[in-house]
Structures are given as C-alpha cells and as structure tokens.
Design a binder for these strands. Structure first.
Length: 331
DNA sequence: AATCCTTGCAACCGCGTTATA
DNA sequence: CTATAACGCGGTTGCAAGGAT
C-alpha cells in the first residue's frame, strides 16, 4: 500500500524556513522534544508538514551540528567510506561527528566527486576511468599505474570489510567459547582461515591507511595539500608509499588476497584472480628487485615506511577504534 | 550595468523500511 | 498476518549568490 502523502495538504507552507519558524520549532523541541513529527507542527504552531520540520531540525537546527569547511581528515574519511559504502550517506555521516548526511552528500557532489574526476578516477567505482587512462598525463605508464592503484585500493577496501567482519567473529567466538583459540572461520568456506592474526592484519591495514593518507598530504612545500589535482604527484607519491608497504607486508597482503578470493560475497575481489595479485606484487617491486624476498615477519614491520601514518604507540589503538567503528557500520 | 552561467546548499519528493493496530 | 501510518534515507530540484562575459 502506498504511503500517505504528508506534504500536499492545503495551507501548508513549503520552501525556505524563516527565522520565526526556526524559533518556534527550536523552542518547541527544546521544551517537549520532537515526539511524533506528524503531530509536532500543530502543537508548535507551524504551518509545515512534520516531514519538513524533521528535516529542518536534523539538518539545520540541531544543536550538535558542525557547519563550515570540511577538514582534510574529514575529506579522507568521506572518500574512504564512500569507496567502502557507496552512497550510504547516513552510514558515512555516522563516522563524521556533527556532520549530517545531507551535508556530506552535498559536499561529495559539489567538491569531492569533481576532485576525483579531475584526477581521472571514477567517483562511483573509485577506479581510474578507462577513457581517461593515459590522458591525464599522456603517459601510458601512468595509466597502468592508475590501474594498479585501483586494484590495490579495491583489495584494500575488501580487506577492510573482511577484517572487521572476521574480527567481530573472533570477539563473539572467544566470548562464547573460551576453548576456541583458532583463527576465525570463514563464513562461506569454513576450511579457509585468514592468513594472519588480527594484529598483523591491523598493521597491514594501517599501512594502507598510511598510503591513502599520503595521497592527500604530499609534501609540505606544495600547495597540493587541500586539492591534490596533480595526477603525476598523486601517482609518484603512491608509488613511494606503496613500495615501502610492499617491502614489509607483501606476504600478508598476498595471503589476504587469496583469502578474500575464497569468499563469494566479495564480488569485486572475485574479479581478481591470483595472477592479478602476483602481478601486482611483481609490478610494484619492479624498481627495487625484491620481489622474491619481500616477505617479512610481522614483527619487523616498519611503521615509518608508511608515509604519513602516525608511528606513535597510541596509533594502533586509534586504528583499532577506527576499524571497530567500521565494523559496527558494516555488520 | 546588464545578462548569463556556475556553484553551493537547503529543502523537497518518493521509495523502502519499520512500527503498530 | 495484513493494512496502514510514520520514519528515514537517498536522489533531485530550486534558488540565491557570486563570477564571467
């Protein structure tokens, strides 16, 4: 059955809110709470539909709203979460305190989407646009670089989703059965186990965090800080960061790739086969010829090689919190 | 100075989901 | 279990402000 219309009643006002209307709504909610939105307008003396009141409150009048320019950190979070969640603005907003989904949606559509387009990256898929490959710099090598970057990013994002799900399983299984000391079992393939312990995965993912952070920070002497529109700089910076990452974490990443591939629920990764992952390793290691001996034990991870990610002792805890937040989101 | 164009954002609309009788 | 009401979300629109011509 269709939903009943709420805004087509005769006499109800539409359009921009006046300060007087804002004041009425604010005063009423502060005193009584919003209660039923449908009943609120009459009680508050407003010639508006409840839906309009609700929207006005949520997007504008609510006291815990931060307005104004988005910080660099907020931009990074939006881009990362958009790659992970798509246009689920409310989900993204849940990770940006004091920002509304509407504001984030607007900011994405008016700023971030354009920026990614300028960089030759499809804002929908977060992969390089095929018709733009090679055109941004005129260099086919850059196009290949972008393609590989997209594969890396895709794998990373799948890793995030996988990790948070599995770590939730770890927590639930350990709490329900103290004798369960093995690695978390895969949901779609019980035989397959994750390639690394959770702390190891966290380190790997932390490295990815550093990589992505690096995409937006560059060096301090340029004016690219807020607007990394230079594809060349973007690529060079990515290579530098990725190379450091590969040196230290290739085995974990490679195994994670194989691990993801076992799960039919991750369709994006289904399109990548083991050769893709191997090829990525060979390609990434081309300049430093450490392809055959890249594997390093997790305890040797060198945090300083991950670009701008924090190397403080508290960063791991922050990282755990970050992923736990995502866990709550995707679970 | 006038007009047109672009941009940013508040608000609306319609659909899916959830709650309730 | 079903029908209906209400809520919440994401896509879209409309308009004001600023910039370009």
């Amino acid at each position: 059955m269709g939903r009943s219309p709420c805004c087509d009643k005769v006499g109800l006002k539409k359009g921009p809110w006046t300060p007087e209307e804002d004041q009425k709504l604010l005063a009423y909610i502060e005193q009584h709470g919003h209660g039923s939105w449908r009943a609120l307008p009459a009680k508050a003396g407003l010639q508006r539909c409840g839906k309009s009141c609700r929207l006005r409150w949520i997007n504008y009048l609510r006291p815990d709203i931060k307005r104004g320019k988005f910080s660099l950190q907020e931009e990074q979070t939006i881009i990362q979460l958009h790659a992970l969640l798509g246009n689920r603005w409310s989900g993204i907003a849940a990770h940006l305190p004091k920002r509304t989904d509407n504001e984030i949606k607007n900011y994405w559509n008016t700023h971030l989407k354009k920026r990614l387009n300028k960089m030759g990256i499809d804002p929908v898929t977060h992969k390089p646009k095929t018709n733009a490959l090679g055109s941004a710099t005129g260099n086919p090598k850059d196009a290949a670089t972008l393609s590989h970057m997209a594969q890396w990013e895709s794998a990373r994002l799948e890793a995030e989703a996988r990790l948070v799900r599995e770590s939730k399983l770890v927590r639930s299984s350990s709490s329900s059965s103290s004798s369960s000391s093995s690695a978390p079992q895969h949901t779609s393939n019980p035989v397959m186990t994750p390639p690394a312990t959770r702390p190891q995965c966290l380190d790997v993912l932390k490295a990815w965090q550093g990589l992505v952070t690096g995409l937006f920070t560059f060096n301090n002497t340029t004016d690219n800080l807020q607007s990394p529109t230079s594809t060349l700089n973007f690529v060079e910076n990515t290579n530098t960061l990725a190379n450091g990452l590969i040196n230290d974490n290739s085995m974990e990443l490679h195994e994670m790739g194989a691990w993801f591939r076992q799960d039919s629920s991750y369709r994006a990764v289904e399109n990548m086969n083991m050769e893709d992952y191997s090829d990525m390793m060979v390609w990434e290691s081309g300049d430093h010829q450490q392809c055959s001996s890249m594997a390093a034990p997790a305890e040797n991870l060198n945090e300083t090689s991950y670009g701008n990610s924090s190397s403080s002792s508290s960063s791991l805890e922050e990282n755990r919190n970050y992923w736990n937040n995502i866990l709550n989101l995707v679970s």
